Simulated assay, not measured.
Amino acid sequence: MSAIPLDIEALDTRSSRDGRADRSFKWLVGIAGVFVLVSLVAAALSMLWGGRLAFETFGFKFLWTDAWDPVNQQFGALVPIYGTLVTAFIAMLIAVPVSFGIAMFLTEVAPKWLRGPVGAAIELLAGIPSIIYGMWGLFVLVPVLSEHVYPWVDEHMGTWPFVGRFFAGPPIGLGMGTAGLVLSVMVIPFIASVMREVFLTVPGRLKESAYALGSTRWEVVWDVVLPYTRSAVIGGIFLGLGRALGETMAVTFVLGNAHELTTSLLMPGNSIAATIANEFSEADSEMYRSSLIALGFVLFLVTFVVLTVARLMLRQLKKREGT
């Protein structure tokens, strides 16, 4: 057999070209990663600088003061922080089990001809603008709740010992309970889509083996599917929580926008995002504007803490799975 001639010069040229392309690609993706970090730090620092007057004037009391008086230039973030956390908690309390049920139905129960249309409907719901959810909540959900639901809740549940104060109040329809319900409808498509996709990654042999051993459908999901996809499911839940914490327009329509600290879910309240959206155009003083920007920095910190906790939880889960 004759030897195949090699063009050493052509090989060196190609190797040099490939090396330059690889280095260029490395620099490009490195710049993209650094850009994300720089943008994050720049956004945080800009809000911190914009809210410096409020932080210098009120100090850490800004975080636990419930006063919000633009006339007397007294501002505190406690009511918006409380409203943000309560509405997000209500949303997740409703959205997580409903999303789990949807994902379980689409992957384990629904016939194949139905899985595609329902899955597409869930993804379409995720693409609806938040202002549409807010208008639906204000014009459809609020009248229904104020006329048919909240009067019964106030009459029957408002008299319960210890927890009655959470359900007592005037049935006006606007309030933290309504905002939490609208938020849950908004985040369900995100969490359900993530759960559905990760449930589909479970190998069929694992589930078939469990069924062969006599496990019920619920036991297969609880003992096989969830442990296999636990990290991804928690990540999807925290993704929905981040969306609920930062939502603006939908909450603004139905929350009531009242700077009052109350335990009743039927009473109007406020959130950080809704306060900024409603009052930034009306801020007629430097202190007023600085306080609103400081609220934005507080929301940034709250979201950052939530996502950090999520990452730590996922890291611990991965360590346990590796042992």
Rank of each mutant, 00 (worst) to 15 (best):
V149S: 03
P161C: 07
G134Y: 08
E155Q: 12
T87R: 08
G83P: 00
H156D: 02
P151Q: 09
H156T: 13
F162K: 05
L145M: 14
P97A: 01
I131L: 12
G119I: 06
V96L: 11
F167M: 06
A77C: 09
L85W: 08
L93C: 10
P161L: 04
H148K: 15
M92S: 04
P80D: 07
I172C: 01
E155G: 02
H148R: 15
G116F: 15
V153G: 02
I102E: 00
T84N: 00
L85N: 04
A95Q: 07
G101S: 13
V109H: 09
V79Y: 02
F167L: 12
Y150A: 00
T87F: 03
G180C: 05
G76W: 04
F75N: 09
G177I: 12
S99L: 07
A103M: 08
G169P: 00
V79D: 03
P80W: 07
P129V: 09
I94Q: 01
S130K: 07
Y82F: 13
V86Y: 05
G119H: 07
A88Q: 06
L141Y: 11
I131Y: 08
F100C: 10
G137E: 06
I81P: 01
G134C: 08
A168K: 14
K112Q: 13
W113R: 10
E155M: 06
V140R: 02
A120K: 04
M176S: 05
I128T: 08
F167G: 00
G169Y: 08
L125A: 13
V142N: 06
F167T: 06
P117N: 13
V118G: 00
G158R: 09
L78A: 12
H148N: 13
V109W: 06
F166Q: 03
P151K: 09
G173L: 03
W113F: 13
G173S: 02
G127H: 04
G158W: 14
L114M: 14
A95N: 08
M135S: 09
V79M: 02
L125C: 14
G137C: 05
G101M: 14
G127S: 15
F100R: 07
V149G: 05
P170R: 15
V118Y: 01
F167Y: 10
F139Y: 15
V109P: 11
P170L: 15
G173Q: 03
E108R: 11
A95P: 01
M135L: 15
T159Q: 12
M92A: 05
G137Y: 10
F166A: 11
G180S: 04
P161V: 09
F162S: 09
W152H: 11
Q74N: 14
Q73W: 01
W152K: 09
K112P: 14
M176D: 00
G119V: 06
G116N: 13
W113V: 01
P117I: 15
M135E: 11
F89V: 13
A103P: 09
F162R: 06
Y150W: 14
